[in-house]
Nucleic acid binder design. Sequence first.
RNA 1: GUGCCCGUAGCUCAGCUGGAUCAGAGCAUCAGCCUUCUAAGCUGACGGUCGGUGGUUCAAGUCCACUCGGGCACGCCA
Length: 592
Amino acid sequence: MAADGADVQQGVLGQVREAIRGQVRGLFGDKVEEKLVQAVGVELPRDEGFGDVSTNAAMVLAKPLAANPRVIGQQVMDGLLRDHANLFEKIELAGAGFVNMTLRLRELLRLALAVPLWGVAFGRLAVAARQKYLVEYVSINPTGPIHVGHGRNAVFGDVIARMLERVGHTVWREYLVNDAGGQIRVLVNSLHIRYRQLFGEEVMLPEGAYPGEYLIEIAKQLRARDGDKWLAVRDEAALFEGLRAFAVESCMALIKADVERMGITFDRYFSEFAMHQGSAMAEAVAALRAKDLVFEGTLPPPKGKEVANYVPVELTLFRATAFGLGEDQAVYNRAGQPTYFGQDIAYHMDKLQRGFDKLVTVVGIDQAGAFKPLAKAIEALCGRADAYHPVPYEMVKVLRNGEPVKLSKRAGNIMLLSEVLDEVGVDAFRFMMLTVKPTTALTFDLAKAVEKSMENPVFYVQYAHARLCAVFRQAGDLGIVQPADVVDEAALEAALAALEGQELSAAARAVVRQVMVYPAVLEQAAASLEPHRLANFASALAAAVHHWYGAEKWLDTADAKATAVRLQVARAAQVILADVLKVCGVLAPESM
RNA sequence: GUGCCCGUAGCUCAGCUGGAUCAGAGCAUCAGCCUUCUAAGCUGACGGUCGGUGGUUCAAGUCCACUCGGGCACGCCA
C-alpha cells in the first residue's frame, strides 16, 4: 500500500472513501461540484450481512444529476471493481442504490497490523484541515467550590480539547475568571463577616451572602496571614481593594484542586479584572461603533413583567435588532460598568486577536439566550460566521438510593464535585458524564456509578480492555509466541504474508470493523464537538470484544497461525480501546 | 409574551446530520451458557403507530410549519 498521508490517517475506510470519491469525480466531475463529492461518505452497513462498508454515493448524487440512483450505484460499483479490485472481496448493489462492499480479509488484517504501528497517526486529519482552537470551559465564578453540575462542564471541555488535539488541531485551554463583577463584592463582604466572626464578633451573614463553610476556612487563612489588620475596616471600597485578590485566589485554589483531581489543567486563567485594567473593552466597543453596531439609545421596559417606576435611560447598546434579534443589548449598564454581554464581546475579541480560528465555549444551557447576540458581535468583529462555537450542556441530576438529591445553592445543600469524586472515583464520573449527549439532561445515579456490571458503562469498557490484557498474559503463560508489533511498512507486508490463508470469525470481523471506523468517529466527534460519541464508540467496541470473547476461544496452542491472527485483532482492539479511553480521560486498566 | 433544550421499548438513553422490507443498546422480565483465556461476561425471547397533525422529498425518528407535554432561561442581574 502506498503509505501516503491520507491512507495512514484514515486506514482502509479512508482508502475506500477516497476510491469512491475518485470514481465520482471521474464519472461526474464535470457535472457536480467538489463540495458534493465531499458529501459522499462511507459507513458501516446497518446489517452485518450487507458487508463491511457501504456508501451513500448514489443517493447523494441522484438528485443533482437527476438520475436513477441504482444506475449511479451501478456505475460507481463497476468503476471500483475495475480500479480497486484488490480491496474488495465482493461489491453488491442493494436497496435504493446502496453499494455494499465486502473487504478482502487481507485488507482487514493489514489494518489490524497497522494500528499499533501508526499509533496516533491513525485518525489524524490532513494537515490542511487542522486549525487553532481555543476551548474555554469551567469558568465558574470564583466564589466557592465547584459542584457536580459544573463537573459536567469540566469533563466536556476537557474531552473536547483532547479529541480536537487527537485529530490534529492545536488547542489552547482557557478558564475565564470572573473576578470583576458584583458577586466578588458579595464574596469579599461575606469573607469579611466570617473573618470578624473568628474574632468573636456577633455578626450575621446578610441575605444574599455566600453561606458556605469554606469561607470560614478562607477567613482563618486570612487571619493567619494578616492578623487583625482588617477587623476594624468598614469601608467597602477599601475592603474590596484589599481583599479581592486574596478572596478570588483562595476560591480559585479550591476549584483548581477539584478540577486537577480529574486531570484537568488550563493553559491560562484569564482574569476579567486584569482585562479591565487595559483597554480591551473600549477597543471592542469602538470597533463595533465604527460599523454602526454600537450606538447610544434607550431600551423598552422588560417584557412580560411589570416593573414599577421604570425610568428609561440612554445606554450604550449593541444593535442586535439589525440581525433580526428581538432586542438591542446593553454593553454598559446605567452605572457605566460593562455588562456581561459587553465583557463577553471584549473577551472574545481578545481571543480573536490572539489568532485563534475557532472559539469554543462550554456553557450551561441556561445561558443559551446570550449565544445569538454574541455570535453576531463576533462575526461583525472578525468577518467570520464560523468562529464562535458555544457548546451548551444540560444540567446534572443526582440520584442517591434512587431518590433525586435536591440541589439548591440557596439552601446550601449543593452537591460538591469533590464529594461525588470521593464516592465514585474519577473514571466513573468522567465516563458517566460522557454517556449522554450534551443537550440531554443527565441523571447521575451514584449507586450505579460504582456498580460492577453492565449498568455501569465505564466498567464494561474498562473490563474489555483488561480482558484483552489478560489474554495476552495468558498467551505468555501458555508459551504462545506473540507476534511483535511491526516496526515499518515492509515488516507489515512480511507479517501479512505470514498470515496468508487464515480466516476470521464473524465476531472477530465485527471487532475489526469497529477498529476500522475509529478515525471516522473521531473526525465526526471533533467536528460536531460532541464528546459523547467517543463514549458510545468505546461501548460499541467493548461490546464487540466481549461478544467475540464469548463466541470463540482465542488461544489455541494446536493452531499457532489462527491464534496469531486472533491476537493481531485483539492487539488492534486493545490499542484502540486504550486510545479512546485516553481521549476520554479514563484509565485503561490492565486488570480489574 | 419571547427564546432555547428535550419528548424514541415498562425504565435510562443512542441513532453516524435525509436513506436499505425488522428503528437500536443497556436495565427490568423470562429462558439458556463456567471440566475454555477474569460469568464484573456471553446467547436467546419479550417489548416501540419514534408526543400529535400537516408539509417538503423517490426516501423523514432525522428537515419545515403548526400543536400538545416536560425542563431552562428571558432585566442595565450573574
